[in-house]
């Protein structure tokens, strides 16, 4: 687990003592990552700012409950994702939950991609610009049910360990593993559906 840095802990303690500047420095330290994380849930800049702002305000309120041996960033991620999902719900954009997604209820061996003989996925063509690949990936991620998008974002984008993902989502490591497996299968399927030109025979 990525532990809070000494600096994080110092700033947390000073914030708890009512030091506004210390909390401002904590916000400054993580605001860019929070804006990037929340962008996976909405593209509206005003909504992103609202969600990130509320994330930090909630974090300040809950600072007394922060466990100093844990990662401040992971803790913040959990608040941000819950705030983003609450926000979606309030706007009637209910994120798809496991029980509502028939594919999630299937056993792993029945999901496309779980068979070794399934269609291959190529690496991005070297001719594609980095930002172009990034946009394609972002587009495919945006098409996934929230439950898959979140776990992929935490692993591939935030590069969190399975344990940290489990902490953020409040699930077991085994569930992280199986959810990631399904999420990757779904990502591959959507990538091929949206961009058939990247299918077999195109491999670089």
């Amino acid at each position: 687990m990525e532990l809070a840095t000494k600096d994080d802990l110092r700033l947390v303690r000073e914030s708890l003592a009512g030091n506004q500047l210390s909390f401002q420095l904590l916000v400054e330290r993580y605001e860019t990552r929070m804006f990037a994380l929340v962008r996976h849930y909405t593209r509206n800049p005003v909504e992103i700012e609202d969600i990130v702002q509320d994330t930090f305000l909630k974090a300040f309120t809950r600072l007394p409950t922060f466990q100093e041996h844990s990662s401040f960033y992971t803790w913040l991620c959990r608040i941000a994702i819950n705030t983003a999902l609450d926000f979606q719900k309030r706007l009637g954009r209910n994120p798809v939950r496991a029980v509502e997604d028939p594919e999630l209820a299937l056993s792993p061996d029945r999901i496309e991609g779980s068979q070794p003989t399934s269609g291959r996925i190529p690496a991005p063509d070297a001719r594609l610009e980095r930002d172009e690949v990034a946009r394609i990936t972002q587009g495919v991620l945006g098409e996934l049910p929230e439950i898959f998008r979140t776990v992929l974002v935490l692993r591939e984008f935030e590069e969190l360990s399975y344990q940290d993902i489990a902490d953020v989502l409040g699930i077991s490591i085994g569930t992280v593993e199986s959810r990631l497996f399904r999420a990757r299968a779904r990502f591959k399927e959507r990538l091929m559906a949206l961009h058939p030109e990247f299918g077999e025979g195109w491999t670089s």
Binding site: G18, Q24, V27, E28, E31, Q53, D54, K58, F60, T61
Partner: peptide, 18 residues
């Protein structure tokens, strides 16, 4: 952004508009 959020936090805004 950070200054504004810190000011609101210390002023007692709990960020629970939702």
């Amino acid at each position: 952004f950070s200054a504004r959020v810190a000011r609101r936090a210390l002023a007692g805004d709990r960020g629970e508009r939702g």
